[in-house]
């Protein structure tokens, strides 16, 4: 048997769920997003990292010999189609 007070609470909860569900959903999605960001973090987003650099300055210094064109080790070409990379 529900008491009057608890019945009122139930009705109030139903009202909130019916009328305010978009807000509740938005808040929940935000919380999930924040949780994912804190839990996973940018450091583990492997394969996503690169930086936009001043490539004109890089070319200028390369031409002047201030920077090097030495080919790096430990990389692969990534197939444009997203297929298996070629060596």
């Amino acid at each position: 048997m529900l008491t009057t007070a608890s019945r009122k609470t139930t009705i109030e909860l139903r009202r909130i769920l019916f009328h305010d569900w978009p807000v509740i959903t938005l808040v929940a999605l935000n919380l999930v997003g924040i949780g994912l960001y804190l839990g996973v973090g940018p450091a583990t987003l492997q394969g996503a990292g690169y930086r936009i650099i001043d490539i004109k300055a890089v070319h200028r210094l390369l031409d002047a010999g201030e920077l090097s064109t030495h080919e790096a080790d430990w990389y692969q070409h990534k197939a444009p189609s997203g297929k298996e990379p070629e060596k």
């Binding site: 450091a43 492997q46 394969g47 996503a48 990292g49 690169y50 790096a72 080790d73 430990w74 990389y75 692969q76 070409h77 990534k78 197939a79 444009p80 990379p85």
Partner: peptide, 16 residues
Amino acid sequence: MGEVTCELCPRGCVIP
């Protein structure tokens, strides 16, 4: 040509 994947460190940067 195109993007390359650096495999030196755990970041595994895919670099355009």
